[in-house]
């Protein structure tokens, strides 16, 4: 995936059974963002693979004050890339469950 400066990782082990997963996001390279992020914290949140979109979560992070609105696309892309990887991995490892 492209290096967006925003890192997203699983916050729990994925067994491929739940549609909701816990993710953790943090800024690795603030220089890649247009605005100043709120702080250096890691933001943990849940994401429903079947019902939600990365754009929804990114928008909620902007509205919650974590990022400037000009960074909504880069945050959404960072989440989207990780979600795509998780879904690809699920289909490869547990095809019968998907």
């Amino acid at each position: 995936a492209e290096d967006t400066g925003v890192r997203v990782e699983l916050a729990e082990e994925d067994h491929g059974r739940k549609s909701t997963i816990a993710l953790r996001l943090w800024v690795e390279d603030p220089k890649k963002l247009k605005g100043k992020p709120k702080d250096n914290g890691a933001i943990e949140f849940t994401f429903d693979l079947e019902r939600e979109t990365p754009d929804d979560v990114a928008q909620e992070m902007i509205e919650s004050g974590f990022f400037h609105e000009s960074d909504v696309k880069i945050v959404a892309k960072s989440i989207r890339d990780r979600v795509a990887l998780i879904q690809w991995r699920r289909k490869r490892i547990w095809p019968a469950l998907q």
């Binding site: 943090w26 390279d29 914290g41 890691a42 949140f45 909620e60 992070m61 919650s64």
Partner: peptide
Amino acid sequence: SSLTQVVHSAGRRFIVSPVPESRLRES
């Protein structure tokens, strides 16, 4: 505790914790 919880109006919870130094990229 160093954890901070932010709840968005749509109901999603964001839990913020410090990033370990080892996870931050060296510049």
